[in-house]
């Protein structure tokens, strides 16, 4: 583009600005006045309970929750409080140790629903039997009912410790049965005293190791945490047989043994011929073929073979009888060279 035209364009733009609102300023104006796309249930939902800043001052405010306690706070608070490592929840009366990594945006507005969905997801990943795993439909339904009971126990915080331990044992038993790599089951962190939060990473790992090793001994004592009636035994598929390059075929002589060499006058002449050897002619092939030709018909019963064919035997019988009479009758049907 030439300098002249660009200058001309610049002039036009300036004129436009002088004349009134430019498209940019218009859009900024409309943005600031636009009501938030997020539906408000109450005024408090847009005020961070920790720093009390509101969406009015910070339109990009984002609220996060931690599945430890499901207390909501704004992103900047999370950054401020938890950036330097685990810290207690700032909500009064909670004081649970939270980590920044676990914070996430809530899927549901109602955090009780959020928690229930989380629990259900976790239970379903452990209690993952299907109808085909059970002997009868009733057993499957009983199982489903029991799973629902476990879920509700966790949701309503009834026997939480006990249920969590049983779930853990069940998960271990399942992993041992399928031979899968162990998936460590994390007890619900929102439950008070589930296993106590340990601040040091090494500590958690050690503890996880201890519990898992303890549980493997448990599974050996066949305490699986739960006992479902009518559960089919898992049968491991038999190991695959080694590959057979011959695919089960074998052509071995039954009525003779093949020697390495045979002596016959008419053969010795050829045996010394260089031309026979240089091209890879195999004498054993010739011997084998001669013997096979000689013994080939032994124990072959044509009648049996015909009967064994997967055809209506009546027709076959007619056919062979006819052919036999024809041959016996000296007709011009020559069946000698049938093979």
């Amino acid at each position: 583009m030439s300098k002249v035209t660009s200058r001309a364009n610049g002039g036009q733009v300036r004129q436009g600005e002088a004349g009134g609102a430019s498209p940019l300023s218009k859009s900024l104006y409309s943005l600031s006045l636009k009501p938030s796309s997020r539906p408000r249930t109450d005024a408090a939902s847009d005020v961070c309970p920790v720093c009390k800043s509101s969406r009015y001052l910070n339109p990009n405010m984002k609220f996060l929750v931690n599945p430890e306690c499901y207390h909501k706070m704004c992103e900047s608070c999370v950054d401020r409080i938890f950036s330097h490592g685990p810290a207690p929840c700032p909500i009064a009366g909670c004081a649970r140790t939270l980590r920044k990594g676990k914070f996430r945006e809530a899927t549901f507005e109602d955090l009780k629903v959020e928690r229930e969905v989380d629990i259900r997801r976790r239970v379903a990943s452990i209690m993952n039997k299907e109808e085909s795993d059970f002997e009868t439909l009733k057993d499957y339904n009983d199982y489903l009912e029991q799973v629902e009971e476990i879920t509700w126990n966790l949701i309503l915080k009834i026997d939480v410790d006990e249920t969590n331990h049983r779930l853990q044992r069940w998960a271990d038993a399942q992993a041992a049965e399928t031979g899968a790599t162990r998936r460590t089951y994390e007890p619900d962190p929102s439950m008070a005293g589930a296993s106590g939060v340990v601040l040091k990473k090494g500590g958690t790992q050690r503890r996880a190791l201890e519990t898992s090793s303890g549980n493997t001994t448990d599974t050996n004592v066949k305490d699986k945490g739960f006992n479902f009636h009518g559960l089919k035994k898992k049968v491991a598929p038999p190991p695959e047989a080694p590959f057979d390059p011959f695919d089960g075929w074998s052509i071995a002589p039954q009525y003779y043994t093949l020697q390495n060499d045979y002596d016959a006058d008419w053969l010795t002449k050829h045996k010394r011929e260089k031309e026979q050897l240089v091209g890879g002619y195999q004498w054993s092939d010739f011997y084998n073929r001669a013997l096979q030709d000689a013994f080939g018909g032994l124990t072959v019963f044509i009648d049996d073979e015909i009967r064994a064919r997967d055809i209506p035997s009546g027709d076959a019988a007619i056919g062979t009888e006819r052919a036999a009479t024809a041959a016996a009758g000296g007709q011009d049907v020559n069946m000698d060279d049938i093979f």
Binding site: P312, D315, I318, G319, R322, N334
Partner: peptide, 23 residues
């Protein structure tokens, strides 16, 4: 007449095909 000539419902295994054909 089906009996006329030994029709085998299945094609003859290859053994018989050749002489038939040659004939």
């Amino acid at each position: 007449s089906p009996a006329a000539l030994s029709p085998r419902p299945k094609p003859p295994g290859s053994h018989l095909a050749v002489p038939d054909r040659a004939k």
